[in-house]
Computed example of a mutant assay.
Amino acid sequence: FFLDWIEITLIILPLLAPVVSALGLDINGYGVVDNPELVWFVMLVAMALQTSFLTPPVGFALFYLKGVCPPNVKLSDIYKGVIPFILLQLLGLLILVFWPQLVLWLPATAYG
């Protein structure tokens, strides 16, 4: 959550793609999706990036919201208000970790 999304997508993902491919994860690609482990990994990163938009110190969404709120709304109030949404994002991330087939079901249905 501490890096900006540009650095993650342009530097970290290309460095980690060969590592994830070499791990030999057994993820069902339904016979349609090439490199299902990479698709799953990129979706995990995307979910983590969505969560990072709601968490300090980067938290772009928090600062955008502060910019459009009335002056009497404090940033600490916004931080408290996004806690349930952060928990939902983390729950979704855990679901994707434990059931990687959820990531690949839609592309396999659409293209299979």
Score class of each variant (00 low, 15 high):
Gly81Tyr: 10
Ser52Met: 07
Asn72Ile: 12
Leu15Thr: 13
Pro18Asn: 03
Ile27Asp: 05
Asp4Thr: 00
Leu3Met: 12
Leu90Cys: 05
Asp77Gly: 06
Met47Trp: 07
Phe98Leu: 14
Leu91Gly: 08
Trp5Thr: 10
Gly67Asn: 02
Glu7Leu: 12
Ala22Asp: 14
Leu91Tyr: 04
Pro36His: 14
Ala110Met: 07
Pro84Ala: 07
Lys74His: 10
Gln89Val: 01
Val97Ile: 15
Thr9Phe: 03
Asp4Met: 00
Leu54Asn: 00
Gly24Trp: 12
Ile95Glu: 04
Lys80Leu: 08
Leu87Asn: 05
Leu65Asn: 11
Phe63Leu: 03
Ile11Lys: 07
Thr109Lys: 13
Met47Lys: 15
Asn35Met: 12
Ile95Thr: 14
Ser52Gly: 08
Phe60Gln: 06
Gln89Ala: 12
Lys80His: 06
Pro71Asp: 03
Ile6Ser: 12
Leu91Ala: 13
Tyr79Gly: 01
Phe53Lys: 08
Val103Pro: 03
Leu3Asp: 08
Val39Cys: 10
Thr55Tyr: 02
Phe2Gly: 02
Phe41Cys: 07
Val103Ala: 14
Leu25Asn: 12
Ile6Thr: 11
Gly92Trp: 03
Pro107Glu: 02
Leu102Met: 03
Val45Phe: 03
Gln101Trp: 12
Val58Ser: 04
Leu16Tyr: 10
Asp26Cys: 09
Val33Pro: 09
Trp5Met: 01
Leu49Lys: 01
Gly112His: 01
Pro71His: 03
Met47Ser: 13
Phe98Glu: 06
Gln50Gly: 08
Pro57Phe: 04
Thr55Val: 14
Gln89Ile: 00
Leu38Arg: 03
Leu3Ile: 07
Leu65Arg: 03
Ala108Trp: 04
Val82Ile: 12
Val20Ile: 15
Cys69Gln: 05
Gln89Cys: 12
Leu49Thr: 02
Val42Thr: 11
Pro14Ile: 00
Leu54His: 03
Trp40Asn: 01
Gly112Trp: 04
Leu16Ile: 13
Gln101Gly: 12
Leu23Cys: 07
Ala46Met: 09
Val103Ile: 14
Trp105Glu: 13
Val19Asn: 12
Leu94Ile: 10
Trp99Phe: 15
Tyr79Asn: 00
Leu102Gly: 11
Val33Phe: 14
Trp99Thr: 07
Val19Cys: 01
Thr109Tyr: 15
Gly67Ser: 09
Ala48Arg: 10
Pro14Trp: 05
Val68Met: 06
